[in-house]
Computed example of a mutant assay.
Amino acid sequence: MNNQDFNYRNGELGIVALESCKGIGEKIDNRIKAKRESEETFLIPTEEIRFSNGEGKVKLSESVRGKDIYILCDVGNYSCTYNMFGIENHKGPDEHFQDIKRTVSAIRGKARRITVIMPLLYESRQHRRKGRESLDCALALQELERLGVQEVLTFDAHDPNVQNAIPLMSFENLYPTYDIVKTIITEEKDIETNKDKMLVISPDTGAMDRAIYYASVLGVDVGLFYKRRDHSTIVNGKNPIVKHEYMGRDVENQDVLIVDDMIASGESVLDIAKELKARKARNIYVATTFAFFTEGLDKFQKYYDDNIISRVYSTNLTYIPPELEKTEWFRKVDMSELISRIIHRLNKDESIAKFMDATYVLHELLNNKKK
């Protein structure tokens, strides 16, 4: 099948990589061009314009009529700035989401299909109600549906059940497990993935399913830390953690992999690492889909210098600042190959089921390492 054939089966491919996704968008474009042996870019030139009072608009510089459009946006990218009344402002998640809506509006219904790829799902931390409060993630998804978006692709949603808010719209929740494990095995030459030498740890009850999956794929045991909270107090919108209680087998002289969907301040992960080190764990690795480091890198650097943590692995699905990439203890997991494969197949109207479950390819990867 030649390039012309699969370009037009679902509409000619067009990728709108918004400012927040320029870097990974170019990588994805290059990989798809290589797959299709094409010299033409699939990226559609886009301008995100801000007026001096903070209002904005999105302008597309070429036709999208009849195209299969994929809008890429990283709502967690805080490095994007604009001037308002002479003051430099950083874009937050709300402004990035508004730019997605502006892009859909600029398309004006001329595209054959619109898919939004939000690696970090907008407002995913506010996915359910506890009392009289807003339900932001569900509202955002319903808004995209009303605007004519046919499909949303995201990674490691805080709670995938939020898709129940849009039962008639396609919602795909993907996981970077294979890419993370592959990067760890490539980087950590001495790590031994067997039951006697390694343990996977869940930092809380919410991440237990993720930890069980990692453990079952790697063929090792799983442990759990339970967060005992003070429910009489609220600090920064949360009940503060009083103590981390451990449930699981002995970790002495074991390599430990702590897995979670995100690192915000990192306080919880570091507390657990300290507890594990006190129990004489050997090397402590952290694997996460999104690394925010909302309170800076200094504390992680200190824990690395003190030999408490060995390495932190995270994807480039959200913004990684240059100073983080330069540290000895951080390793980036590039996801552009997976996203390019998914866009390539969806545009050809082919199944992406094999990307939803990485178990088989992970077993292949680990068997090859043992050989």
Rank of each mutant, 00 (worst) to 15 (best):
E26A: 12
K27C: 08
D29H: 10
R31L: 15
I32Y: 01
K35G: 02
E37S: 13
S38D: 14
E40W: 00
E40P: 00
E40F: 03
F42C: 00
L43P: 00
L43M: 12
T46S: 07
I49S: 09
S52M: 14
N53Y: 05
G54W: 03
E55I: 00
G56W: 00
K57Q: 13
K57S: 13
L60S: 04
S61D: 10
S63R: 12
S63V: 05
V64K: 09
V64N: 08
G66I: 07
D68H: 13
Y70C: 04
Y70R: 06
I71M: 09
I71E: 03
C73V: 12
C73E: 11
D74H: 04
D74L: 09
V75F: 02
G76K: 04
Y78M: 09
Y78S: 12
Y78W: 01
Y78L: 11
S79Y: 06
S79N: 12
T81S: 14
Y82M: 07
M84A: 13
I87T: 14
E88S: 14
K91N: 05
G92W: 05
G92D: 11
P93Y: 05
D94I: 06
D94N: 15
D94E: 15
E95R: 07
Q98C: 03
Q98E: 09
D99V: 02
T103L: 08
V104I: 15
S105R: 10
A106L: 07
I107F: 08
I107P: 06
R108T: 00
G109C: 08
G109M: 00
K110I: 02
A111Y: 13
R112Q: 11
I114M: 07
T115W: 04
P119Y: 03
P119I: 03
L120S: 02
L121N: 02
L121Y: 06
Y122K: 05
Y122E: 01
Y122A: 08
E123W: 11
E123R: 11
S124F: 01
S124P: 00
R125K: 14
Q126W: 04
H127A: 10
R129M: 15
R129P: 05
G131S: 07
R132H: 10
E133Q: 15
E133V: 13
S134V: 14
S134D: 07
L135V: 06
L135C: 01
L135W: 12
C137N: 08
Q142F: 02
E145D: 12
R146F: 09
R146E: 13
G148T: 04
E151C: 07
E151A: 01
L153I: 15
F155E: 00
H158S: 02
D159C: 07
Q163D: 03
Q163T: 01
